[in-house]
Design a protein around this nucleic acid. Structure first.
Lengths: 186, 186
DNA sequence: AAGTTTGTTCAAAATTTATTGAACAACCTC
DNA sequence: GAGGTTGTTCAATAAATTTTGAACAAACTT
């Protein structure tokens, strides 16, 4: 059911604030909505789904932590989306789960230290690709080492260059981590 | 029409080498195919379409430059895809077009300096997003400055943090450029 | 232990994104 | 200037990705 469809439901008898979608009430302020859109854009650039940006954005710009069902209600997204999005964010370390007294539901708050976010993204999204790429490259280099064809020398040269790229990429990630870990002034 | 479907076409009478897809002939060697796949994976991580990876990969691992129609024939992709992919790569500076004597067709060669590739990607893909994000953020900050509600102070705090992220991101890009511009030893 | 709450999974549907191919424009050539 | 190349554009199609929602499992409650 879309947010619009639910907005149109005027016959509900017992209304809980959490059941009403964003635009029909003030539960997500317009300023918050704009920040959420900002995050949606940002995660798209990183190649992540919109829902991930919405969830992180909501938590980032909300003064209080909240459980899954509240996120679902505020954003008007499905439980499935929210569950998957939260798992992703948790795995990345972008979201911190914790328990609240007298509430079985797991609550989530945004992790807002740039260093932690970057570290999570590097470990979870970049490094795995870099490593599988390195493995693939090594296999190809072995094949090229045995290539006596006309182009063998050219291939080896290009593969050496690729190896060089990868090495510098790895160094770069370390530099990035070190830079973001620093406390910056001004 | 897929490459497989065309491979099955055994009834063709007049066969030009360029008309035959990859696997039916030796025109793209298996080693080249593996390198192309490596690039396809890499560009997917960067959020770019497969065809861009195929085209750049082919040029990267080919000893000689080639014009659009040869790329189309070697990769078995459409002229439209190749045209769009080449425009993208050219705009990024990842591919260098030039003329060959006695040939009206524009030929392309891969640019293989990591620094140039990174600079092109930063200028073409990252900076525009960073800048539009910065503008959006400033607008939101103006709104928050006037927010006297209960949450106003919290919002201003978070928006200040976002501004800090953006500042550090900008610095980081400069560091990356400087690092990749350096000639590295070992 | 029957019912409730909380959260996950995954096949189907919806949405988004990429690719195709035919029409077209620009530019040569004879 | 008719015919042939080269390359672009863009609406239609195809492919890939995301979202949904219903079924389910686990854990708690009474």
């Amino acid at each position: 059911m879309s947010a619009e469809a639910r907005s149109a439901n005027q016959t509900r008898v017992s209304i809980h604030a959490e059941d009403i979608p964003v635009k029909a009430q003030g539960e997500v302020e317009s300023l918050q909505l704009e920040v959420i859109e900002l995050f949606v854009h940002a995660v798209k650039v990183l190649g992540l789904p919109k829902s991930v940006g919405e969830i992180y954005g909501l938590l980032f710009i909300s003064p209080e932590a909240m459980p899954l069902d509240v996120i679902v209600a505020r954003l008007g997204i499905s439980k499935g989306s929210a569950s998957q999005g939260l798992r992703f964010l948790r795995n990345l370390g972008a979201v911190q789960p914790f328990q609240v007294a007298d509430d079985r539901r797991e609550h989530f708050e945004a992790v807002t230290e740039l260093k932690k976010l970057a570290a999570g993204f590097i470990n979870g999204e970049i490094n795995p690709h870099l490593e599988s790429g390195t493995q693939r490259l090594e296999k190809i280099r072995k094949a090229a080492a045995a290539d006596t064809s006309e182009n063998g020398a050219f291939y080896r040269d290009r593969l050496a260059r690729l190896g060089n790229w990868r090495r510098r990429g790895g160094l770069l990630l370390k530099i990035v981590s070190r830079f973001l870990g620093r406390t910056t002034k001004k």
